[in-house]
Write a protein that binds this DNA or RNA. Structure first.
Length: 438
RNA sequence: GCGGUCAUAGCUCAGUUGGUUAGAGCACAAGAUUGUGAAUCUUGGGGUCGCGGGUUCGAGUCCCGUUGGCCGCCCCA
């Protein structure tokens, strides 16, 4: 039996699994649409260079890549951002701005499996192009929060940690550091939550032992957990006035999110910088409040990327939510959907003649949109009633010899177990009446 | 790429110091049941015990290897 298995890290979706996935996607879609985002899609297979251009050569080891029959180096998409940048870049001058787009797609990464991570997974990606101000971040963070609230998750379950790569850059720049040092320190900040002070090893290997005063300033900055503390830190001596100008954007962003009633979901946290070097401004990550799972979602501003991938200069912000960790959180909080695949109507058939009589009704009811099922083989009535009850149908239509002779169909309410007769010609109306009448 | 741990029916698991033909519950199916549902009873299908090799008269059990799952490290777009 188990001769062929799925490849490591890949998943089969049995109907009950797919039902859950579909439910998640449906709510995400509805929510994105409610925010005015338009859905797009792109090829699963892309030129390998698309990812090299964005992420460098090291990325190749993490990709499902191969050479196709035409000698082209290709890869299964590991993320959506480069693809959507291509789409937007190619028509940047024709698209009305702001460009608000989303997709729900499957991605592939050649990585070791872990809790909440496999080699294939789905993501909701949402991006706003063409809006340089924090208004775009407001829109996206609000969408992100709503994509989780739509399932019943609250600010007790998750929060969005908000930080700012631009501010980090300006802050470290004002301390007199050059760009290579800044990038190395940001990598250390990213690691610090997991590794503690070991996070500075990489920096010290490249640039020598870190100055105690610098380390103190960096640790102080990454420990900032509120806007008040941020304002205070930027008021300290040695921080240039230009840096504090950035505070106006912060104020606008936090005020906007507060006005949307989302303040309780937002956690200022300068310890978040995200590993990705291409982020140029605000960055944010969604986490479960208990801190038991890996990140639920991540995003940020990447104003240079469309241009770097060959398009025009175009400011952009985006985020992605993966399905695996999200499904784990829903499961943990008992919010995983129980999706009914039950029919509305189950037909009980006496025999050959009754089956034929029922078929006309069955087909008519199905055409009208009712979910109708019936036994494929002739079974005793006892078995059929059991099957009807097991199916989860609300009503059974009984086509027996007696009914056929009298020109009627019996409708049994499978919940309260009452029965009523209807003329055979009035079945559709009777069923409609049952479901529409409540 | 590295480490820990596990692998017996669709699922959850039992299987004694190595000993005859590998079991149970649930699930599935047939019947008791030719007109009324969650019960009961009977019966059945399902396993190369993850795979390969070794030790042994004999391996689900012991040893080695390998594949895969889970958990963690590196990484995390």
């Amino acid at each position: 039996m188990a001769t062929f298995q799925t490849l490591p890290g890949f998943r089969d979706f049995y109907p009950e699994d797919l039902a859950k996935r579909t439910h998640i996607f449906r709510l995400w879609r509805q929510t994105a649409a409610a925010f005015g985002f338009a859905e797009y899609d792109t090829p699963v297979l892309e030129p390998l260079d698309l990812y090299r251009a964005k992420s460098g050569d090291e990325i190749e080891g993490q990709l499902f890549g191969f050479t196709d029959k035409g000698g082209r180096e290709v890869a299964l998409r590991p993320e959506m951002t480069p693809s959507v940048c291509r789409l937007v870049g190619a028509r940047a001058n024709a698209l009305k701005r702001p460009i608000k787009w989303f997709s729900i797609a499957e991605f592939y990464r050649y990585e070791r499996m872990q809790k909440g991570r496999g080699r294939c997974f789905y993501q909701l990606n949402a991006d706003v192009f063409g809006e340089p101000g924090p208004e775009a971040e407001i829109e996206l963070i609000a969408l992100l929060v709503q994509c989780m609230r739509a399932f019943g998750l609250t600010d007790k379950d998750f929060c969005v940690r908000l930080s700012d790569r631009m501010l980090w850059f300006q802050f470290l720049g004002s301390l007199g550091l050059d760009e290579p040092r800044i990038r190395s320190l940001l990598a250390a900040v990213d690691k610090h939550e997991r590794s503690g002070d070991d996070a500075f090893k990489g920096y010290e290997e490249s640039f020598g032992k870190i100055d105690d005063e610098l380390k103190r300033r960096v640790l102080g900055f990454l420990g900032i957990r509120s806007f008040g503390a941020l304002e205070q830190a930027l008021g300290e001596p040695g921080v240039s006035a230009a840096v504090s100008g950035r505070l106006a954007d912060w104020r606008k962003l936090l005020d906007g999110l507060g006005a949307m009633g989302l303040g309780d979901y937002i956690q200022v946290d300068l310890g978040v910088v995200r590993g990705l070097a291409y982020y140029t401004g605000f960055v944010f990550e969604a986490f479960d409040r208990k801190g038991e799972l890996r990140a639920l979602a991540g995003g940020g501003r990447y104003d240079d990327l469309v241009g770097r991938l060959g398009g025009p200069e175009l400011p952009a912000v985006g985020f992605a939510v993966g399905d695996m960790t999200f499904a784990l959180l829903l499961e943990e909080r008992g919010l995983s959907p129980v999706v009914s695949q039950a029919p509305d109507v189950y037909c009980i058939l006496g025999g050959e003649a009754e089956r034929k009589a029922a078929f006309a009704d069955i087909n008519r009811l199905r055409a009208a949109g009712f979910r109708v099922d019936y036994p494929m083989r002739d079974l005793g009535f006892g078995k059929q009633f059991k099957a009807a009850a097991d199916s989860g149908a609300k009503i059974a239509l009984i086509y027996g010899g007696d009914e056929l002779a009298k020109g009627i169909v019996k409708m049994r309410d499978l919940v309260d177990r009452t029965e009523r007769d209807f003329p055979a010609s009035g079945v559709e109306a009777a069923v409609r009446g049952f479901f529409e009448g409540g």
